[in-house]
């Protein structure tokens, strides 16, 4: 295994902005001079299904898919989806999770329970665990849709890439009228990690 490559698995539910987040990360790391590859599945996932995006950067990247057990950062936009991909983590990996729950159909129908105490389960087995109130922070700032930018702010703290490059790339994807909101979302997200 090439330790020069960093593997990030972004996981969530259709509509949460998982793919946009990994698109933004790809551009940031390409601009920062790395080889990048990413892979996801579009199509049926749009209808409330599971969405994952494998994102990798390094000197030279071959596979667009991360090998099970080699995820460096599990970047989960929803609790259950974080738990679902838990086993893909490297023992030395980190988890950055949005404190948000979206019920799957079996839970809505009352046939299964939403797993209890997911943050506690993860924390009991993993030291590097960051639970971010992304959706709540975005709501306070005025729009729940900015949650993914809060989360990008948080993850950006793990890398030595200039935060201006992050912000510039993020704002490029967004209409000017929401730039101010997303600037705040990004910096509030970054603050979450220093406080953890």
């Amino acid at each position: 295994m090439d330790q020069m490559t960093t593997n990030i698995l972004v996981a969530g539910v259709g509509g949460q902005g998982v793919i946009l987040a990994s698109d933004i990360m790809s551009e940031v790391f390409m601009e920062a001079g790395y080889d990048v590859k990413k892979s996801e599945v579009h199509g049926m996932a749009m209808r409330g299904g599971i969405v994952t995006s494998h994102f990798r950067f390094g000197k030279k990247v071959y596979s667009p898919l991360i090998k099970q057990g080699e995820v460096d950062i599990l970047f989960a936009f929803e609790q259950l989806e974080g738990l679902r991909w838990f086993n893909y983590l490297r023992p030395t990996g980190k988890i950055l999770m949005n404190d948000n729950k979206v019920n799957p159909p079996a839970v809505n129908l009352g046939e299964m329970e939403y797993p209890k105490d997911i943050p506690e389960v993860i924390r009991s087995k993993f030291k590097s665990f960051y639970l971010i109130k992304g959706t709540e922070i975005a709501l306070q700032l005025g729009d729940a849709r900015a949650a993914n930018v809060v989360l990008l702010g948080a993850i950006s703290k793990f890398f030595e890439v200039n935060d201006d490059l992050w912000l510039k790339t993020i704002l490029n994807y967004l209409p000017p009228k929401v730039h101010e909101l997303n600037r705040k979302a990004f910096s509030t997200g970054r603050d979450q990690i220093s406080q953890s």
Partner: peptide
Amino acid sequence: KPPKPFFKEPLPPRPPNLC
């Protein structure tokens, strides 16, 4: 040698759905 799983409980599936 496959990596050791951290978690083994079955989880609720999340099939795609009519909107």
